[in-house]
Amino acid sequence: MNFKSKFVKLTAAAALTLTGVAATNSVKPAAHVQAASQVVKVNYVPGYGIAVWSNYEGGHTTGQYLQHGSSYKVIKTVKDSQGNTWYDLGLNQWIMAKYTVSANTAVSQAASTATTNATSQAQAVINIAKQQIGKPYVWGAAGPSSFDCSGLTSYAFSKGAGKNIGRTTYTQLNAGKRVSVSQLQPGDLVFWGNYHVGIYLGNNQYIHAPQPGQNVTVASISSYFYPSYGVRVF
């Protein structure tokens, strides 16, 4: 499985450099916010980046990714309702603190084996799910010609990673660690209450079997139909 397929490959132009002790953000902070002196470096996976979010609580990904090893000035620091620390880079650009280190700390040079394995399994699940796009929703169906929402997720995890997550939303919501919507990673299950489930693809998108009369499709997370939480299986 190609480990690189899960992440967005960043170009050299996206990287920012640290000169002396002063860092320059990709977008200047809003004028009414006083810049802090703290500078952090992205510490994720060499060659890849972390998502920028529109808010630290209930936000969405902006489509921008910050490259591993690049440096940014932190405007302010907050904690969300789950206790996660977030950094404000200015103009509604937020990143999770856990993916950074201080400016004078060396970043990782290689991905861990555990991260690589989880990434490969998640991508395999996504690949199987995408192969079902266009197949009709049928209540109670679990493939291969038709699906309901939990039938699709069950099929994708079973065929893609040999993982039994249960057949219904009621069992699948206990198939792993619960995470907030802002923490979603590709391959996570994404839930609306306990009645609907899909698979998060990254970049604010998910794949699901919507409802009778519709087919398996890719959709974008929106405020109109906002998920309740995610479940990380790997």
Rank of each mutant, 00 (worst) to 15 (best):
N2W: 01
S5V: 04
K6Y: 12
L10F: 07
T11Q: 15
T11L: 09
A12G: 07
A14G: 05
A15G: 14
A15V: 09
T17P: 07
T19P: 04
A23L: 05
V27W: 02
K28Q: 03
P29K: 01
P29G: 03
A30E: 00
A30L: 03
A31C: 01
Q34Y: 03
Q34C: 01
Q34D: 03
N43Y: 12
N43C: 07
V45Q: 05
Y48C: 08
G49V: 07
G49I: 06
I50A: 14
A51M: 09
W53N: 13
E57W: 15
E57T: 14
G58W: 08
T61F: 02
T62N: 03
Q64E: 15
L66P: 06
Q67R: 08
G69Q: 09
S70W: 03
V74A: 06
T77H: 10
K79E: 13
D80P: 10
N84Y: 15
N84A: 14
N84M: 14
L89M: 08
G90C: 01
Q93W: 00
W94E: 13
A97Q: 14
K98V: 12
Y99V: 10
T100D: 06
N104T: 11
A106H: 07
S108V: 11
Q109P: 03
Q109H: 15
A111Q: 09
T113G: 04
T115S: 13
N117C: 04
A118T: 12
T119S: 10
S120Q: 14
S120L: 08
S120R: 12
A122P: 15
A124R: 13
N127W: 10
I128K: 11
Q131H: 13
G134W: 11
P136K: 10
G140Q: 12
G140D: 13
S145A: 10
S145K: 13
D148I: 04
D148C: 08
D148T: 05
C149H: 02
Y155L: 01
A156N: 12
F157G: 02
S158V: 03
N164M: 13
G166S: 05
G166E: 00
R167W: 02
N174R: 10
V179H: 08
D188N: 15
D188V: 14
L189Q: 00
L189R: 00
W192D: 07
Y195I: 05
H196N: 04
V197L: 00
I199Y: 06
Y200K: 00
N203L: 06
Q205P: 02
Q205R: 14
Y206V: 06
H208L: 09
P210I: 10
G213V: 06
N215A: 11
V216L: 11
A219H: 02
I221W: 04
Y224I: 04
Y229G: 01
Y229L: 02
G230F: 03
R232F: 06
R232H: 13
